[in-house]
Design a protein around this nucleic acid. Structure first.
Lengths: 339, 339
DNA sequence: AGCGTCCGTGAGAGCGCTCTCACGCCCGTC
DNA sequence: GACGGGCGTGAGAGCGCTCTCACGGACGCT
């Protein structure tokens, strides 16, 4: 197989052609400052002529670093990978990583066994750094990575007391803004379709709902909350429950666009007009929101930027050994017809 | 950094503990049949006790293979990565790869420079195999990879005469089926919003439209075709043009759901009812189709399966050195309200 | 009994690179 | 003019693994 690709040229070849030692050639390749101008030029010329590119494996082995970064999507989020969340965030990540020497290894753990193997691989130094996308609140991975001393950045808030970098969208603030919008629109009875209680963004958005109501001098009654699982049918069922408990519901904050679509289904089925009878605000601002009927007022989170910032924070840890830090990104309210 | 992670145990350690040589330990790890039962058991026990996992870099270097597979999304599709196409397909790929020793390296080329660097890396043997997702008809990458002898599987049809594996959805058949549906619904004047002429799926879907019309004894007139760029606004504009040219249009096949959404916009703006005045069929069956108004009749392609089959075909080349082959997956017509 | 064969095993040579050391060389300094 | 101190350089020792090769013992054959 190797023969078919022709003999690959090595640092040794480059060095020979440039008339220097392998060590010097290596220095040039790695941008060391302790090389004379002449040597540098000679080596660079040789590299060009030979079409040299370093052998990743050899480099990793010698330097004890893999030059790769894992993008981990842990269970049970894998099924949600098709979620409009991941693609833009991944785009942000790859955009930042492209000009660096790091390659991105996609690690979606589909099975329990796979998850274990993955964790072992990560902790044993299979990668230089890890980006974790996982909505699960109790995910032990960030802590394990932190304990193993592996630079890590998570999307969302990390578990309390775990020293990893993180980038979060301002879920609380965004939800708060959404609910304030409903209040300002004169809505009196504002419920929320929340996410599962074990997923951080879901919890945060619910918290935002509570804060906004409290700020408006109202009581966020627990039975104005119906939890669902971030699916469309889940959103529909939750909305139905809410409607039963509170026939006078006139405002609804739904923790995701997809669930909001379900809410619209339920509302339509119940004969309520949107936004006249019930005003609805979603979260995410996916393409779905624009095409919904009526088009959904929703909270936009800057997903691509989120991915990009994650990558940048990780690079800070990796290449400049900065300590892990956290960043919270602003969200925007996008007002359309539903509220 | 390494110290913080503790000393990693090596094959040597395992061998010592098991009381065998490194060579034998290696044989066990790699499942060679030429090992005695006793030795195998001893080594396996040692591996467990020590928590050994092989060092990827060392293995790659020694064996001259990287144990990694690249998932390449080449320009100009990167922007479309957020497209509902990629996530499910990627899921299919990772699902198949998870239990293997291969890791998936995500290579999205954002820039021209990045694209070049990537190609160099791939061709120089940075990966064992490549999965190419690129709708671009003229993409030179598959041919270059084939020439370099690197096992490759592309999504969609490869360029003529390039010997790589491929997995395609039956775009022609699906489109044909969609248009036949319109014919069966009694539509007389059936136009199509096609994709860009340089993207294979777009071309194939147009071909399907032509075939279906021809089969129904009609002439697929070129001015019943309006090309767009797979965006919503593009679909809207194309539909508007079609409507101008053919006010009597009563059937419309749109080459993607997202464009179909734009078509619905244009139709609504022109005061046409769907499906009464104009029946519309989309392609892809994304979540968008379900939530459209009216819900879109559309052609479903098995995206996750597509990814899975791609991965499987590549593994066939890699591990069983089978020659590259192609597979075409069936598509389904999903009938909803729009046609 | 003698021979060949096979099979499990170990020794050891790399794979291509990084990085530590030590060695000259050319300064500046006293 | 002798000396210390950079600074650019090269030699060489690994990094952890795979894989070839050669070896000894167990067996089957004549």
């Amino acid at each position: 197989m190797n023969a078919a690709r022709g003999r690959r040229c090595t640092l040794e070849d480059v060095a020979a052609r440039a008339g220097v030692s392998r060590a010097t050639a290596s220095r040039v390749v790695n941008g060391s400052p302790r090389v004379s101008e002449a040597a540098r030029r000679a080596v660079e010329a040789a590299i060009d002529e030979l079409g040299y590119a370093p052998n990743r494996a050899a480099r990793s082995l010698a330097a004890d670093r893999s030059e790769s970064i894992a993008l981990v999507v842990s269970e049970p989020s894998v099924r949600l990978f098709a979620d409009p969340f991941f693609a833009p965030a991944t785009l942000g990540v790859t955009g930042v990583l492209e000009p660096t020497r790091y390659q991105l290894v996609l690690a979606l753990a589909h099975t329990e066994a796979g998850h274990e193997r993955l964790e072992r691989h990560l902790v044993r130094g299979g990668v230089d750094g890890v980006l974790v996308m996982s909505g699960r609140a109790g995910d032990p991975l960030p802590r394990r990575l932190a304990d193993a001393g592996i630079p890590t950045v998570v999307a969302g808030r990390p578990p309390e007391g775990v020293d990893v970098g993180y980038v979060d969208a301002d879920n609380v603030g965004g939800a708060c803004r959404a609910v304030r919008h409903l209040v300002e629109r004169g809505r009196r009875r504002i419920g929320t379709v929340a996410g599962p209680p074990d997923m951080v963004p879901g919890v945060d958005r619910r918290t935002g709902w509570e804060k906004a109501l409290a700020a408006a001098g109202r009581t966020p009654e627990p039975d104005l909350v119906a939890a669902a699982d971030f699916t469309r049918s889940g959103g529909e069922a939750a909305t139905r429950r809410l409607l039963e408990r509170h026939p006078d519901l006139d405002g609804l904050f739904v923790a995701s666009d997809l669930m909001a679509l379900g809410a619209l289904d339920a509302l339509r089925a119940a004969g309520r007009r949107v936004p006249d009878d019930v005003a609805v605000v979603g979260f995410d601002d996916t393409e779905l929101a624009r095409s919904a009927d009526p088009p959904l007022t929703t909270v936009r989170q800057p997903l691509e930027q989120l991915g990009a910032v994650m990558a940048r924070l990780l690079l800070d840890q990796l290449d400049r050994d900065r300590p892990p830090t956290g960043v919270v990104l602003d969200t925007d309210l996008v007002v359309r017809a539903s509220a």
